[in-house]
């Protein structure tokens, strides 16, 4: 293989940078056209309900099962650590704070990217490759309003709700392990949790995080589908990109949001 000269490497780096900026520009315009301006058609609410079902309701099973297990594991780990310090009564507080502040929004967003995000990308990519998006355009219907917008809104609405459900079932799973199995006193478990969890600092901040994640994950998913190369390989690449980019974005944003919300500096 021919070795690339320094000049060629700089040129390739520059081209990659331009490509990244072009994609960012396209994705911003895409979002703007999808969410702002006229061109929507009748039956928008029905389209939204349909997408809420496929994006939100169909993700419930994986969210509930994961939430229960993660809550159970948290309680188990928390109990084994806290017992060493004689503080096993605080296991409820630990489970609740971990779930509400971090794991609820983050794990839900990661699961959502894998389950619903990849499905959205594949669905829109497939519509593109079978000319259904072109067909809509030529019928005089804007696919950004008819196809993309309901999916974006469905993601924005579903993910925070799923994150809340995740936290609730996680706490329930934690109580099952800690109280019913490991014998932590039920009164301490719940009262410690009640005393230490702040509605504004913990619950609302968690919801705020999941709103940001919902926005980013759904945006990445629908844009990757809409912008993909309309071939089987292109759709496959776009689906992978959705999961990778969305996961990295969620983890990166989580650090920034945590620093802003809980950082004491």
């Amino acid at each position: 293989m021919r070795r690339k000269s320094l000049l060629e490497r700089i040129r390739l780096f520059g081209r990659s940078a331009i490509d990244v900026v072009a994609v960012l520009g396209r994705s911003c315009l895409f979002l703007l056209h999808a969410l702002v301006g006229r061109g929507g058609i009748g039956g928008g609410f029905q389209l939204l309900v349909k997408q809420l079902y496929s994006v939100g309701v169909m993700s419930l099973a994986i969210i509930v099962v994961s939430g229960v297990f993660i809550g159970m594991v948290l309680a188990l780990q928390g109990f084994s650590i806290l017992t060493k310090y004689g503080s096993e009564q605080a296991v409820g507080q630990m489970v609740a704070l971990t779930l509400l502040r971090e794991l609820g929004p983050v794990v839900t967003a990661l699961l959502f990217a894998g389950r619903a995000g990849s499905a959205l990308t594949a669905e829109i990519g497939n519509m593109k490759s079978t000319e259904q998006l072109s067909s809509l355009e030529m019928i005089g219907v804007d696919p950004l309003k008819y196809i993309v917008a309901p999916r974006l809104w469905a993601g924005f609405i579903s993910l925070p709700l799923l994150a809340m459900i995740f936290s609730v079932v996680g706490i329930w799973g934690g109580s099952w392990v800690a109280v019913d199995w490991l014998g932590v006193y039920e009164g301490s478990f719940w009262s410690n949790m009640q005393n230490s969890v702040s509605f504004v600092d913990d619950v609302l901040n968690g919801v705020l995080k999941s709103l940001v994640f919902a926005f980013v994950v759904t945006w990445i998913a629908v844009f990757q589908g809409y912008d993909c190369e309309p071939t089987s390989e292109g759709i496959s690449r776009a689906t992978t990109k959705t999961v990778v980019y969305a996961s990295l974005a969620v983890l990166g944003l989580d650090f920034i949001l945590t620093a802003l919300m809980f950082g004491d500096f």
């Binding site: 061109g39 079978t130 000319e131 259904q132 072109s134 067909s135 030529m138 005089g140 219907v141």
Partner: peptide, 18 residues
């Protein structure tokens, strides 16, 4: 999009909504 309401296109694949 308004202008396209007066056009019809028959795509090669049909492009039916699946």
């Amino acid at each position: 999009f308004d202008a396209r309401k007066h056009m019809g296109v028959l795509f090669q694949s049909g492009a039916l909504f699946t």
